[in-house]
Design a protein around this nucleic acid. Structure first.
Lengths: 221, 221
DNA sequence: TCAAAAGTGTTCTCTTTACACCCATGC
DNA sequence: GCATGGGTGTAAAGAGAACACTTTTGA
């Protein structure tokens, strides 16, 4: 079956940048391409948009198909439309990004993606297409939004300590933060509440676990 | 001539929001559609992307064709991809915005656009397609960037008074600003210099005309 | 008792806001 | 000489940055 038009049309894809923080390091989710072009090269998850879905739905679908990750909140990053960015045909790509807690992510690649894995931002492989450029823009955007919004909370699981949260901010800012100032700031926003539970994973004073006061009221992006 | 593909492809358009400030009011450039759909309805300038141009070039070309405006700096706003946003076929639109001085804009519509005109943001007609929604997002983005960047300078002609500039900031913020604080702030950025010339258009003390110290060094968007 | 992370306030600096009067000109 | 917008400084409040010690626990 072929689809014909009076004028030429580009193909449209979405690409998704998934950030997480593991052990104090900012990481990103990549898939290894199972097909040409760029077979066996690491790339951002994503794929072609269908006619009955908008770009955001497409990104959600591709992300789940390729990595098993779902129920994430996507923010549109930018649309890349350089003429020869894909060797197959004219393809424009709408890029999205999301932040996710590092816990309990089951990576389950499918046929389009031979493999899915987390990469440290300081130790990235060469990426397919113009995905390196896309990732660079996403990283800039993430850094910027971490300073003037509360998206950082999107990295957190249901319960977390203030030190966990500070680690996330330190990982994205790539510099240490003052503990007292950080806690003063985050608590002054009045978004968090104590759970009453404590957590410890070593020979030290246990830390209070916090949660979002209202997961829905928090400004998502 | 027809163009055929193995899978269905959407059409891709660009839409451009052109802001200016005239007489202390924020205005936007619209064209009246010369063809169906939405014939004779006001709409954002824009049109279909060609295969040998990227989206930004497309936006520049369409803007010049439809309004005569050229040599502007475009910032990508957002890509709109709702399934039924165009009655003809599946169309996704990459929206751009720009700011321009109000002086010396010669509006010269062509065949796609029967007419081009500036509209006060407080007194807008109904817009074609989802252009109302696009404009709303552009307005939010403009307001935000006026507060944390120096894009406001993009509204200015080569020479301008500090009162001119303050008017621009007041028009986009929709509230009066303190004259002394505004001047202190803008001069502290060290982006402006006195031309030595003065300007007056009424029975009052003439105002110093300023210009950008270095038009290229100013952060554009 | 030691090691390791949790937790907690005050001071100083800088940025932001509020506010009122004289100046130069055209009519 | 009067009406009109141009031009100027200081003080108070608020936000952000710097900084060190005690607490609780496991081993």
């Amino acid at each position: 079956m072929t689809y014909c038009y009076e004028y030429p049309h580009p193909a449209v894809t979405t690409d998704i940048i998934v950030f997480t923080v593991q052990k104090g390091r900012l990481k990103i989710l990549l898939i290894k391409r199972a097909r040409e072009p760029f077979k066996d090269t690491w790339a951002l998850p994503g794929g072609f948009m269908k006619m009955d879905e908008d770009a955001c739905d497409c990104a959600l679908r591709e992300l789940e198909e390729e990595t098993g990750l779902k129920d994430v909140y996507l923010e549109q990053l930018y649309t890349f439309s350089t003429v020869n960015r894909d060797p197959r045909e004219r393809v424009i790509s709408i890029a999205y990004f999301t932040l996710t807690p590092s816990e309990a992510i089951t990576l389950k690649p499918d046929t389009d993606a031979a493999e899915a894995a987390w990469f440290d931002m300081q130790d990235l492989p060469n990426l397919a297409f113009d995905h390196g450029e896309i990732l660079e823009m996403a990283t800039e955007r993430l850094s910027a939004k971490m300073t003037y919004s509360t998206i950082g909370l999107q990295f957190m699981p249901a319960k977390f300590t203030l030190s966990n949260l500070q680690n996330v901010y330190e990982a994205t800012a790539n510099k240490p933060l003052d503990k007292r100032n950080f806690r003063k700031w985050i608590l002054s926003l009045d978004l968090l509440e104590e759970t009453g539970e404590k957590f410890s994973d070593g020979p030290q004073r246990p830390a209070m676990l916090y949660r979002l006061k209202d997961p829905n009221s928090v400004d998502i992006f």
